[in-house]
Simulated assay, not measured.
Amino acid sequence: MEILLLVILLLVFLLPSFLMMRKQKRNQAEIQTFQNSLRPGDKVVTVSGLHGTVTAIAETSVVLEVAPGIDITMEKMSVVRYQHTGMVGTADSAGAVGYTHPEDTPEAPLDDQRGQSPSEPPFQAGGDTGSVDNAPEDPENRDTDGDHPENRP
């Protein structure tokens, strides 16, 4: 009976870690396959979030163009995904359906520099700011009766 209990306890603690190790190895293999399949012209994202276009590939490094005429050399291991898809080796690696990159979306017209939309009236200084009857008093301006420990001399 004691041996059966010991076996069950070992399974409870060792089985989850064994399953996580298998999943992690599978994810690492998928990322390795992705990194080995990189080609010049691919738009990618690095671990640090740097977006760029692959211009050259070596055995362990990759050259990314991050701006026109600006190339940087990075380790191939730091490239984790294509620019418009999820992380390689995760559930969202199949592609981001319905996702649009912020640079690809048109900006909404703004009425002024404060970022108000055209439907909102512009702010007018000195205008009616609304009722302040319900606003709490400033604690600094309250009359004190001296009962509170902070108000005692």
Rank of each mutant, 00 (worst) to 15 (best):
M1L: 12
M1K: 04
I3E: 15
L4A: 09
L6I: 07
I8A: 12
L15Y: 13
L19G: 03
M20L: 13
R22V: 11
K25V: 04
N27Y: 05
N27Q: 14
Q32E: 13
Q35W: 04
S37T: 06
P40Y: 06
G41I: 12
K43M: 09
T46N: 08
V47T: 12
G49R: 09
T53N: 01
T53R: 07
V54Y: 12
A56W: 04
I57H: 06
S61F: 11
L64Y: 12
E65F: 04
G69C: 09
I70Y: 01
D71W: 05
D71R: 12
K76N: 09
R81F: 10
M87Y: 08
G89D: 05
G89M: 03
G89W: 04
A91I: 07
D92M: 06
G98P: 06
T105I: 11
P106S: 02
A108G: 07
R114H: 12
R114M: 13
Q116G: 03
P118C: 02
E120Y: 09
E120V: 13
P121L: 00
P122Q: 03
F123D: 00
Q124R: 14
A125K: 05
T129G: 07
D133F: 03
N134L: 14
P136T: 02
P139M: 04
D145N: 15
G146V: 09
P149C: 02
R152C: 05
